[in-house]
Design a binder for these strands. Structure first.
Ligand code: SF4
Ligand code: SF4
Lengths: 144, 144
DNA sequence: ATAATAAAAGAGTTTTTTATCTTTTATTTT
DNA sequence: AAAATAAAAGATAAAAAACTCTTTTATTAT
């Protein structure tokens, strides 16, 4: 579904989002630990997300990654697009080269409906939404 | 979603299924051409599917891969299981290590419904169904 | 029997993805 | 200004996935 990088990215973004709510900045080490991901690999991913303006970063003491209210409005879809490019949207089950509404494969209409749900799932869930849900105590995010 | 091998496998199985309806056996070369896949790679995949009893094969002149009526009852899910193992069923969006109904991530219930649809899609479509659909002329399978 | 055919098997290569290590640069506190 | 901190960048390395090539074995038609 998503690449490993993308999975790490999503988890890290949620992690940073939670800390940002408390006005905290988090360093790579903390992010890596909190998401159970390899530190240096995570560093790459975070740098990339930062370059693509999905969050902010500050060097030096008390530096680290953080989000402002605009950043918190990013959806899972925004992260996916930044990390995996358009593949999630473009790619299809059977990986056919030639197909369309008028040239549909046998599962096209069935799959189309499912995909629509998948897309709205990642587009309608923002980091702020995640924060809210996690705060209710009814949802969790555990990595080990 | 599926590995490349699995995509090839699905296409190849549909291809062989269609030929088998006409009581024809098909060699690897023909399968590779018909599915626009690399020949030797496809050979590996077909051998594997054959070993796992998803279709039959015969060596020698007039040999090739073919399916009997039992083979045609295999679903896409059977192919996916044979090639990708249980990963399609096991793996989940966020790739969390610890989660459950009582420990759900923020998209759990949304995703659960989608996944259910995905699973019934691959389980309820057999190769025979595909043959029928393709015969109506309303559906297509094009690779280039 | 022999030659032709085609799958089966095994070894090897390339490419992509994932992960690690090292150095550099920017910032801030003292 | 100096020391400390932490991100940024670059260069490798390891692992997995995708793909290729070569040899072997089984079958069948002649
Ligand atoms: S489901 Fe639709 S878009 Fe996807 S491969 Fe089939 S025809 Fe193409
Ligand atoms: S909580 Fe549910 S949706 Fe989330 S990762 Fe686990 S199984 Fe998947």
């Amino acid at each position: 579904m998503f690449s490993k990088s993308c999975e790490y990215a999503i988890k890290a973004m949620i992690f940073v989002a939670q800390k940002s709510k408390e006005n905290l900045r988090v360093g790579i080490k903390e992010i890596a630990k909190g998401t159970d991901a390899p530190e240096h690999f995570m560093a790459k991913i975070m740098q990339d997300l930062s370059r693509r303006k999905l969050l902010h970063s500050a060097k030096g003491p008390n530096g680290g990654f953080y989000m402002d209210n605009t950043d918190l409005k990013n959806s899972i879809a925004d992260i996916v697009k930044a990390v995996d490019g358009g593949s999630f949207y473009k790619d299809c089950v059977l990986g056919l080269k030639v197909c369309s509404e008028k040239n549909p494969c046998p599962v096209h209409f069935e799959y189309k409906a499912i995909k629509k749900n998948l897309i709205s799932m990642i587009e309608n869930n923002t980091l702020a939404d995640f924060n809210e849900k996690l705060e209710t105590g009814k949802f969790f995010l555990k990595n080990k």
